[in-house]
Design a protein around this nucleic acid. Structure first.
Lengths: 114, 114
DNA sequence: CGATTATATACCTTGACACGTATATACGTT
DNA sequence: AACGTATATACGTGTCAAGGTATATAATCG
């Protein structure tokens, strides 16, 4: 498996992660909310744990799983250069729209500003 | 294939995307820089194109591929809730470290501030 | 201790996809 | 038209991981 990217390629794992954003959950709670067979939940949690996405603590027979930030931060870091790229694009689009706007203004002389 | 996540799960595809951040490239240029057999490059580009990650224009026999922002923005959007989560965590960590720092200060009374 | 609840693991099957090799298409040059 | 370069596609193969079912481990309660 290895990479962060392969881990989150699996939809059910993403669903689990999204569940855990709000608060920690037991296996059973995840099972019920996602309507997923228990062994599947456990297996995906195992993968997520091995990859450092989640950690667990024991509460009697239950295990409570919660998020760990690092792997998703890694993802975020990978995105950084692309973010720079597309913000340039957005700027360009905005300039384009501004020019459109200006053209519209100079046609019919009534318009809101900014 | 479908999802953005599955597309970027493949390391060679991520490599291609990273190459294209700086500027558009022909298939041959990608092939050389990544030392990857040409059919493989073409196939990955096909996948990337179908998923909207790249677009191409024709330049004689060459095809120039360049990035498109949307799919990666989608990824970025997915990350948003988690970002909120881990910034909370960082805050917590900082508070913790501040407390450590303060303790250290009150022990040996000489210390830089902030 | 036996029964019940909660979770983890083992084993099997199946399908998807990444890769390699071969070939097709397209454009350009002589 | 023949040839070379650039890129795309077709096909066969192997691997790997997701899902299902069954069973194991662990803790709680009677």
């Amino acid at each position: 498996m290895e990479s962060v990217f392969e881990i989150i390629a699996e939809p059910n794992r993403r669903a689990i992660l999204s569940l855990l954003v709000s608060s920690q959950q037991s296996v059973g709670e995840i099972e019920r909310q996602l309507r997923m067979p228990q062994p599947m939940v456990s297996k995906h949690l195992r993968v997520l744990r091995d990859a450092g996405f989640v950690e667990s603590t024991v509460d009697a027979q239950r295990r409570l799983y919660r998020l760990r930030p690092e792997p998703l931060q890694e993802l975020d870091a990978w995105l950084a250069p692309f973010r720079r790229f597309w913000s340039a694009h957005v700027d360009e689009l905005e300039r384009h729209l501004d020019r459109m706007e200006e053209a519209a203004i100079s046609k019919k002389k009534t318009r809101r500003k900014k």
